[in-house]
Amino acid sequence: MLPGSLVVLLLLSIQPSAGHAQSLTWLPFEEALARADSSNRPVLVDVWAPWCGWCHKLKNEVYPALTVELSGQFVLTRINRDNREAEHHYRGQKITSLRLAQKFGAQQVPTLVFLNARGDYLLHITGFVDKKTLKPLLTYIATEAYHHQSFEAFQKKNGF
């Protein structure tokens, strides 16, 4: 009986990893920009759409696997590019979700947009990105290595 109890306890102890998604805090866009500025952390903007299966896969599988990197080093926000009613304030303009996504080069979903702590556009990547691919990019942005080297050089130097 004891070995069965141990198995149950082990399974229960593993369960919290599935709960990592709850520990990520996704802020409204304007609040994310303010928090980034005050905490001197870059912003990850997840541009998504409700019908996009790859967007849901990012949210449910990739982000939870990178909870430590994301919650510790980035301010997170999501923009539903199909929401025609939502408006955001960016750089003195009132702009819809679709127009904001387009401003960041997000013509398709999913797209990940990276902004520096001041809200300046850094880069974007379009399409689904797995954990193995995203992790070095997060490190590249969080360490501000983009100021002095290409992503390719960064990957080579750091063994990614």
Rank of each mutant, 00 (worst) to 15 (best):
Q107M: 05
I79P: 03
E69A: 02
H56C: 01
A101T: 10
I141T: 01
L44N: 11
F74S: 00
S5M: 09
F151E: 10
F114D: 03
Y90T: 00
T139A: 10
V68P: 08
L6R: 06
S17R: 15
Y121W: 06
K59V: 05
G72N: 14
P136M: 08
L6K: 08
E85P: 08
G4M: 12
V7I: 15
C55L: 02
S17V: 14
F151H: 07
L6A: 06
T77C: 01
R84G: 02
L12N: 03
I14W: 04
D37I: 02
A36Q: 11
L138H: 05
I95P: 07
P64C: 02
D120V: 13
N80V: 07
G159T: 09
V68L: 11
Y121M: 02
K131C: 01
K157Y: 12
Y140E: 03
L100C: 05
D120K: 15
Q15L: 11
P50G: 01
L58Q: 01
T96N: 07
T143R: 00
W54A: 07
W26T: 02
G127R: 08
L12A: 10
R81C: 09
R35H: 12
Q107C: 05
W26V: 07
L100H: 01
L123H: 08
L70H: 10
F151D: 07
A101M: 08
R84E: 08
F154S: 04
A153V: 06
L138N: 05
R99N: 15
L66Y: 05
Y63F: 02
S5R: 09
Y121V: 00
L9V: 13
K94D: 09
F128Q: 02
L10T: 10
K57F: 02
R78W: 09
T111F: 06
F154H: 05
Y63V: 00
T96S: 11
E144M: 00
H124P: 11
S150M: 01
I125E: 15
L11E: 10
Q107V: 04
S97K: 01
A86Y: 10
F160E: 03
L27W: 14
I79K: 00
T25L: 12
H148T: 03
I79Y: 03
E85L: 15
E87I: 07
W26K: 02
Q93G: 09
L137A: 07
D130Y: 06
L137T: 11
C52L: 10
E69H: 03
L9F: 10
I141N: 04
H147C: 11
P64L: 00
V47P: 11
L112S: 04
D120Y: 14
E85V: 11
L134G: 03
L100R: 01
V8G: 04
V109P: 09
I79A: 04
F29H: 08
I14H: 02
Q73A: 04
L100W: 00
Q149W: 12
Y90S: 01
